[in-house]
Nucleic acid binder design. Structure first.
Lengths: 208, 208
DNA sequence: TCAGACATGTAAGTCGTTACATGATTCA
DNA sequence: TGAATCATGTAACGACTTACATGTCTGA
């Protein structure tokens, strides 16, 4: 009956690094994870409360360094166990609902130029994404090589204390890059096919 | 306030090909679209009713060719307009929540072998998916070349009547293949990095 | 005769987003 | 002083899945 509760585990995982507030978590996700994970405040704050109610995290008021009162959440031993249990459980590939791909698939009755426009919009979005990935990749590569937490990420996750955070961060980003590049390759292939089809049609090939 | 109603458009798009029942739509999605689009009966049947209530589709009882009574839904002119309006509206890239990627990212505190296990599971899933794609690709390629609807897809979508269904089907599949191959490439890269890291650790590199 | 495909539908509950409400502090 | 950022939270809504309920027809 629909109960994966993934938000809980995402939060627990981040709290396993260091204590954070809901706001911190949101910012961290926006800065680094948004291309494979997202949370909204409407999920975050209630879930943090639920975590406390279940004894998986504890909340303490923290020094309000600018702004309003701040609630810092710290993971408990029980929370850590719960998180690790989840981490070790096998995971199915997610069921997708990709609107751009659906639109392309359904565009078959449209004139070829409209299909072309769809792919061009998609390509522009993928390119933009790749432009955002690339500088981060350089920073992370350098950081992993030197085994030092880069100043560009200062305060973002906290220093690497015997974990592989930097390497995992880089590898996660690498998947994003490789997949985005593959999608760009696909765009070129699709545009070529569509344009060839368009030419054949207007030259009096089978146009019904 | 959360209102994309994507299920409506997915259904309208499929009905724009030919009249179908809820069951037909579900089967079609399972057979060909599942890697980028999914719908459950709990969405499908109520949404079909809603479409009728809004005058975007009409329902008629159809010959029950085996099984229970059958409801065939046909798209209306208004439905077609609604569908095309949606198709032509710009689309943002979907916000993802990929559990496998989240787990990998959060596995940084785990021993390297556990990270390796995560990637190996993921790689096996991607390989399996690719094995499913490949035969369909051959069938569709041949079909597009000869411009005939292949018997393997008989009844699935209905014959190609001046649209580009076959080409779009093939191209959609191609994106799936290219992305899956990119993920497999990533798996190899990640395994190499993790294993190198594992060796360095056990040789007394920085292990805290 | 009974499994499996055909076929439709509902109930319950979870998941998740958006918009709104609130309020303090910093800095130009 | 007022915009930006820090910071927490709720209300309303809509999206979606799962499990369940029901019933027919075909073929081994």
């Amino acid at each position: 009956m629909a109960a994966k509760r993934k938000t809980r585990f995402a939060i627990l995982g981040l709290l396993s690094w260091k204590p954070m507030s809901g706001y911190d978590i949101k910012k961290l996700i926006e800065m680094g994870l948004q291309y494979f994970w997202n949370e909204s405040y409407g999920q975050l704050y209630p879930t943090l409360e639920a975590l406390v109610a279940e004894g998986l995290a504890v909340r303490k008021a923290a020094s309000t360094s600018g702004g309003r009162r701040r609630h810092l959440y710290t993971i408990t031993a029980k929370g850590r166990r719960t998180f690790l249990d989840w981490l070790r459980k096998p995971t199915d590939l997610p069921k997708l609902r990709s609107e751009p791909q659906l639109k392309f698939f359904l565009a078959s009755r449209l004139p070829v130029e409209e299909g072309v426009r769809l792919v061009e919009e998609y390509r522009a979005q993928q390119r933009e994404r790749l432009q955002l990935y690339k500088p981060s990749e350089q920073i992370l590569r350098r950081a992993v090589r030197n085994d030092v937490w880069p100043e560009e990420l200062e305060g973002l996750i906290g220093p690497d204390e015997g974990g592989n955070e930097l390497l995992m961060f880089l590898l996660t980003l690498r998947q994003g890059i490789l997949v985005t590049e593959a999608r760009l390759t696909w765009c070129d292939e699709a545009l070529k096919s569509l344009r060839a089809r368009g030419r054949r049609r207007s030259l009096g090939g089978k146009s019904k």
